[in-house]
Amino acid sequence: MGRSYQLGLFIRGDVDVKDLHQAERFKPSATRRDFLGLAAAWSAVLAFMMAMLGAFRLPMPSVFPESDSKVKLGHPNRFEIGTSTYYPKHQLWLFRDEQGFYAISSICTHLGCVAERKENGKFDCPCHGSKFSVEGEIEGGPAPKGLLWLDLSVSPEGVLVADTLSDVNVGTRLTA
């Protein structure tokens, strides 16, 4: 016995173990009581917040109803060079030129309206007047970025597939 312990936070200075049982050596300070009280209160608050966090994690979906975002567009041979095809259900345009295939989503990057493709090939959004070039680049209005070029691929059965939730750099083409 007679060893000294350093209990920094709770008891200051060197304390003999047997002294711990003696009341006069062990003066309970208001600070310690406050500390324990506050610690208890804050752990309750923290526990409550964590519980709330767990509860409110629920409305954040981990699976989206449209998780099958891949759209089958048809066999590549169906599309002549220099043509464009619109898929109204998925609001995307499929183009084929000499260099290959590319798909542009007509959903306006401003607030989600559907941009209309005019006769000259440019896109106009009816909601707030955003304007896009033939390649979907911004030409005017409030849109923060150009129309998205969607990821194109060929499925095992040889059908063109566009992914509506995945975009590629402007100018990326799928070579036929």
Binding site: M60, P61, P65
Partner: peptide, 16 residues
């Protein structure tokens, strides 16, 4: 993106 997903439960306005 989080706000929109929380509000819509999807990336578009649908049943969710």
């Amino acid at each position: 993106g989080m706000q929109k997903e929380l509000l819509l439960g999807a990336h578009y306005v649908g049943q969710e």
